[in-house]
Design a binder for these strands. Structure first.
Lengths: 346, 346
DNA sequence: TTGAAAGCGATACCAC
DNA sequence: GTGGTATCGCTTTCAA
């Protein structure tokens, strides 16, 4: 069965239709739509009735073109990345909506090829401003948007080439250091393996710095053999840990750059009959929802994800409306000690 | 530090600017942009140079208004839902891009209140068509779009009120039945608890039907005590299982309506010292990436997620271009037997 | 308080 | 092949 849904262009109701039906001018309709000027009670009622009866909805493209604004902000994220996006995105949407803005989301780094040669990235012209996630847009594109004076806020990354783009970063280094301190001081770990994250993510690099710093502070030499890439992925992390095990690499703890990597590691450990935390301590980063339900509950670092989203939106809207925003906002993180490091937990 | 990023409206380059710079008419520029008509090699080169030099990008709103199409399809999803979205969305984006379409994503069910009373849902007018996920849009809104002849494809749900809207569904019932069969026949389970999913999801209901059907086929009476809501959430599932345990409810297996619920259940079980699968068998549904790395690897049902996304896009584009699409597409599912049910696995 | 009319930036049809 | 121009639906002056 093949239903015919072909859109009939003529079927679309326009502001003119509403005006006709309400027997007023389109200006008046526009006014009640936008509250942009006072309208007599009587006419307003007529217009609203007409709108309701016709199920009229204003056409965004026309509003965008005529007005300056789209009342929409865009969000560009990458396929691979910290998996708290499912939590963060709704929080961003909520804050945007609270301010009368709509949210457009796009998987970046995959510019639609417009007309063969002209990269046609979403965001531009479609939105009043962009929230940009790590590894989602090439530096060149960010630069282009910046030169175009397009409002942007970068999340969990610093601007390329020192451009003056407002950005939010999470406190990674010190807390990572603190977590490794905990492993060393409380649990007596000495050979702590490190599952690094995706290179493009600054977060990953900073977490590694914290790791090395703690090692150094405790007089432990960094052993390259104990470092490998997990790429923020379960599978890679799983394989990496398996490889360590096969090669007989010895370690008494694993610091995974994010919780998902930790889960991959956990699986590999489990499969090899190595108990967590009895034989090997395991810690992650991000505190995604699932982490507390893992067997064992994962020791990790909590990021105030929803707050991060809220602040990002607020900064972006400030930027859009006033042209000003804080160049850098640092968001606090918190060590969440559960059972996977060897501590007691509930 | 407060950088000044205020957008200067005048800064935006338009097609007229390009035309001037290339010393041609805007018609010509439009032609090379869209390949809509032959342009001499010479002029084309000039235009392309101008575009590149000015970093010009066509303004979507204007194109949308002037042409009929937006070359964009929209995706509306809900906050809570099967957690393979992170996998599915990129696959949808890929297929869309392959066909020269952009993808807009929006968290639905949260209509922006436009002008106090007029719900202003994204999608409309912004896109050429919509992919709609379960529980993302109220039936009324779907109906409205349908009456408006707006192309839509529903994913994992049937249309409200029997409207003739093309939709994709996953084969749930038989496979769920088969999984319970497996539990009963292979592992000798008799008291199989059921963690139900979100009410709004048809998938959840069908999985439950399969569960009951298998029970009935094996002469096992359905015990209401063994059924509770997991809502597709870890926490709820975790609490639900804990409650069962506290109340001394006896069961030898748990069928969780999706993998995330299974993880919550696993955690509760683990915490109570109950081993999976030795003491209680556990199975899920969806086969999200993490499931194979769980301790123990989860027995579940695989959905061809990327294929689902691809097909959805193809159907929607067909609908947009020809006005025709298959009313219903059924996607195959597959039982993935791993270790959590009691089987050997790798 | 209301209506008329001038754009917004692009497409596409019409002549040349 | 190329350039003019009506047009898309709406917002926003500007007069009345």
């Amino acid at each position: 069965m093949k239903p015919n849904n072909r859109p009939k262009p003529s079927a679309q109701k326009t502001i003119t239709d509403v005006a006709k039906r309400a027997d007023v001018s389109i200006s008046t309709v526009s006014r009640v739509l936008n509250h942009s000027a006072p309208v007599s009670f009587e006419l307003e009622a007529k217009v609203k009735t007409a709108i309701a009866e016709m199920r009229y909805r204003p056409q965004t493209a026309a509003r965008t073109l005529a007005g300056q604004r789209t009342n929409t902000i865009g969000l560009v994220f990458a396929e691979i990345g910290p998996d708290f996006y499912p939590v963060m995105i709704p929080s961003i949407e909520k804050e945007a909506r609270l301010n009368g803005y709509n949210l457009l989301i796009s998987v970046g780094n995959n510019p639609l090829q417009f007309s063969d040669e002209i990269p046609f990235t979403l965001g531009d012209h479609y939105t009043d401003g962009l929230l940009i996630f790590p590894a989602s847009l090439p530096a060149e594109e960010i630069r282009r948007q910046f030169l175009n004076d397009f409002p942007m806020v970068l999340i969990q990354q610093t601007p390329p080439n020192g451009l003056q783009i407002p950005h939010l970063v999470v406190k990674n280094k010190n807390i990572a250091c603190k977590m490794v301190d905990h492993l060393i001081e409380v649990h007596g770990c000495r050979r702590i393996a490190f599952l690094a994250g995706l290179n493009e993510h600054e977060d990953a690099a900073q977490r590694e710095m914290g790791y090395r710093q703690s090692l150094a502070a405790h007089g432990i030499l960094f052993d390259p053999e104990l470092r490998t890439e997990g790429y923020f992925l379960r599978k890679e992390s799983y394989e990496a840990v398996k490889l360590w095990l096969q090669r007989g690499v010895e370690f008494d703890a694993i610091f995974a750059c994010d919780d998902f990597s930790a889960i991959g590691a956990l699986s590999a450990l489990n499969q090899a009959g190595i108990r967590v935390p009895e034989d090997v301590a395991l810690v992650g980063f991000d505190d995604i929802e699932i982490s507390r339900y893992l067997p064992p509950p994962l020791t990790t670092v909590a990021i105030p994800i929803e707050e991060l989203g809220r602040i990002a939106v607020q900064q972006l809207l400030r930027l859009i409306h006033t042209g000003q925003a804080d160049l850098v906002t640092e968001v606090e993180t918190e060590l969440v000690v559960r059972r996977s490091c060897g501590c007691e937990y509930k």
